[in-house]
Design a binder for these strands. Structure first.
Lengths: 121, 121
DNA sequence: CTTTCATATGAATATCTGTTCATATGTTCA
DNA sequence: TGAACATATGAACAGATATTCATATGAAAG
């Protein structure tokens, strides 16, 4: 029976089984939950959120971003890779210089709401 | 001069100084950036985002959540503490049982946009 | 082709973070 | 008061992650 399994897993008795089942049915799909957790994780970093807000103002090369954030070039480059893999930024090459820009303008709506949320505290 | 300082910090020459200055002026304040990064970090976790989506459906006790997510009670309790400290959940006590619920409905708008973002990929 | 400069990348490291285990707290009920 | 149960908490551990350093790649210019 399910109660035994639950006790083994959670160290306690099911208290409101109907609630659990009702909520379970309404939960978003696993891949959506994991995907959005991954997305928020990418955005939930001091350096990366600064890069995104900067690129919202203007496309910039790696060196510009490094100067702006007072960090070394390598750190920025590593984080740009994370952002690129997440589909949040894109780049174009112009000679030696690589210009990064936002790849998903919609994301800024979410970031702005994050600012608003903090502002309301 | 600032160029020397920048070279020391970022291992490269400033390429577009005007761009950097213009972007710098428009950047959100440090505390907002850090605050929203912290907020997204809290939300950017598999377990915590599941808890929040669950509580959006219904208030639940710790044990219910543990059963729902098939995790042990202690892990859930630890994460609820993180969510509480972030101001995202609140609780009420009813005898031995502690019921958790969302403390900030507005946050669900942001979480929903996260789901939408993932859905569009 | 060699030098120079912007960027990328791999390895190493230090820090952070999530889960587990053991146990404490606090409430109910006999 | 003491047993039973829900929850909280601290310590320990494992895995993840951000930054740095050294170096590689790749493009332009001499």
């Amino acid at each position: 029976m399910s109660t035994d399994k639950n006790m083994a897993v959670c160290d306690c008795t099911v208290i409101h089984e109907e609630t659990v089942e009702r909520v379970r049915k309404e939960m978003p799909h696993e891949r959506l939950l994991d995907g959005s957790a991954d997305f928020f994780k990418v955005v939930g970093d001091r350096t990366r959120i600064r890069i995104l807000h900067a690129l919202f103002q203007s496309e910039m090369c790696v060196c510009d971003i490094a100067v702006l954030l007072e960090m070394n070039q390598s750190a920025i480059s590593h984080q740009l890779r994370v952002l690129k893999q997440a589909g949040l930024v894109k780049y174009r090459r112009e000679g030696k210089i690589v210009f990064y820009s936002l790849d998903d303008e919609h994301v800024m709506n979410i970031l702005d709401q994050g600012l608003v949320h903090v502002g309301h505290k």
